[in-house]
């Protein structure tokens, strides 16, 4: 399969190395891209711990856990696909990739159900946002209505608190939590969609027997991307769903 070496590379080894390194560098930029959202999350969770607890409690831990397992399984499939392609089993690789794609779609489906639930409960940030502590959480926070907020950390932060009841203030802060929730999971879901398309193309090529021990770069590289999306979720899950 020497036809796979582009004109400007010397050999397949160099080409594989370049593609692999290129994907890793791309993933470094992705780490910084998602990382910025995690940074926003960190700042606000530090400022409004109680609102984050309250918001987190309204998320469905069971769905989140299932989704994490689904995504981990898809990663396993991708790893097995790379293994299969590298050991001259291109058709098997295609099978594993289809498995990964199915898991990805399942993940997106569960996510869609969760989103629909948020719309139904008016938990989507914007004009219609509503959040009532009593009716929402199974766990009311410490029974007390005082919202401990590092007000001084926010320029003008006490301005709203001055005109509103603690519950109203909490509702605002929870809206902030949900803004982050939708920004982060939405961006993640977008990456999932891109990943599904990517794996679809590679799976088709694998089914046609395009990959072998000497050439499986696309499987490896798109696999790296998929694993990365999985890793983002590995952090999103505890940070969004499991706050006490």
């Amino acid at each position: 399969m020497t036809g796979h070496v582009a004109h400007h590379f010397d050999d397949a080894e160099q080409q594989f190395h370049a593609a692999n390194l290129g994907m890793w560098i791309f993933l470094a930029t992705e780490v910084m891209f998602f990382g910025s959202l995690f940074a926003a999350y960190t700042a606000y969770r530090y400022m409004f711990p109680e609102a984050f607890v309250a918001g987190s409690h309204s998320l469905d831990v069971v769905m989140g856990t299932i989704n994490t397992a689904v995504l981990l399984l898809s990663s396993l499939f991708v790893a097995l696909a790379v293994n299969a392609a590298a050991t001259n089993r291109s058709r098997a690789a295609a099978g594993f990739l289809v498995g990964a794609i199915v898991m990805g779609v399942v993940f997106l489906g569960i996510k869609a159900v969760e989103y629909a639930d948020k719309f139904a409960h008016n938990h989507v940030p914007g004009a219609h946002f509503q959040f009532h502590r009593e009716s929402e959480g199974e766990h009311a926070v410490d029974g007390e209505h005082h919202v401990s907020v590092n007000e001084s950390a926010i320029p003008g932060g006490d301005f709203q608190a001055g005109h509103n009841s603690p519950d109203r203030t909490l509702e605002k802060r929870v809206e902030l939590f949900f803004s982050l929730y939708f920004a982060m999971t939405g961006l993640h879901a977008l990456h999932m969609v891109i990943g599904v398309v990517l794996l679809g193309i590679v799976a088709y090529q694998a089914w046609r027997g395009a990959y072998s021990q000497t050439y499986f770069t696309p499987v490896e590289v798109s696999g790296l991307y998929w694993h990365f999306v999985d890793i983002v979720w590995v952090f999103l899950f505890p940070l969004l769903y499991l706050i006490r």
């Binding site: 932060g157 803004s179 982050l180």
Partner: peptide, 16 residues
């Protein structure tokens, strides 16, 4: 989309 990340009305920090 009206999602308020930096919105001071929600307690968001424009400095972020």
């Amino acid at each position: 989309l009206g999602i308020g990340i930096f919105d001071p009305k929600l307690g968001g920090d424009p400095l972020l």
